[in-house]
Simulated assay, not measured.
Amino acid sequence: MNQGTFAYLSLSSIKAGVRAREFFLEQPNSITLHPIVTLPLDSVIPEDPKTLSNKQPRIVLAGEAACAIYAFPPNRHTLGATAYLIVENQVRILVDCPAWDEGTQTFLEQQGPIDWLFITHRGGIGQIQALQQALGCKVLIQEQEAYLLPGITPESFQQDYSLSLASQVIWTPGHSPGSSCLYLMEYGGVLFTGRHLLPDPQGQPTPLRTAKTFHWPRQIRSVRYLLEQFTPETLNFICPGANTGFLRGQRAIDQAYDRLAQLDLVTCLRTQPLL
């Protein structure tokens, strides 16, 4: 396991093991709190799959830092999820699996060799075998979900894993046992959340409880953990792994830390799952 750390994260100070993640929720400060809105996983219906293959990935962030971020069209193989490509100077990272077709392959080949494919959770696997075989990239997944990749020998991690000097993976269990986020230092801090945090109809980041949620209290504790690790200066954007239609044309959720801090996590614990 790679235990690398960087300035904005204090992960090295966290004791290893699950016990270190079992922290208690404190009463929120006197700020404006927003209730959690629960939505089904497929509440934002992806566009007609016949048209998706004709669409190119779009720029999310570029020009102000030494890397670019692209978002792929929703992928029907992952229930309409959004995959991302991070292009740094020395490394290229796919976050979850985009739809694998000729257009995707051509685009990725134009960006240069893909070094890593990071899977945020079991729902982001998609057509991973075909993709990994064509690209020859390394695959990273949290150790509790590595068994879901037959025929592939992935890299796995327990708590955190450094992919580059500017990017690090953080275990945030709850949505699924191995649910994890990727943090990128550029652009004031960008967090790729998979389905751990999704936009609600107002575009606010929120945890989502469904009948398939693995462990809801743990997911809420993982949200609190992220709030403890970051600040408004180190977490500027969230790139969610689904429900991007709720962003209303925006490419990412801005003012990410401030928006997260407005969640009423105590009330959220009492949220009932949707069927």
Rank of each mutant, 00 (worst) to 15 (best):
V95T: 14
D96V: 13
P98T: 07
A99R: 11
A99G: 15
W100Y: 13
D101N: 11
E102Q: 15
E102D: 14
G103F: 04
Q105F: 13
T106S: 08
F107G: 09
F107D: 04
F107P: 08
L108Q: 07
E109W: 08
Q110E: 11
Q111V: 06
Q111I: 09
Q111K: 12
G112T: 04
G112Y: 03
I114A: 03
W116M: 15
F118R: 03
F118Y: 12
I119L: 14
T120N: 14
R122I: 08
G126Q: 00
Q127R: 12
A130V: 06
A130F: 08
A130W: 07
L131E: 00
L131K: 00
L131W: 02
A134C: 08
L135A: 09
C137F: 05
C137Q: 08
I141E: 01
I141R: 01
Q142T: 03
Q144E: 12
Q144C: 14
Q144D: 14
A146Y: 03
Y147Q: 10
Y147I: 07
L149G: 10
L149M: 11
I152G: 05
I152P: 01
I152E: 06
T153G: 04
T153H: 14
P154T: 01
P154G: 04
S156C: 09
F157D: 02
Q158L: 15
Q159Y: 01
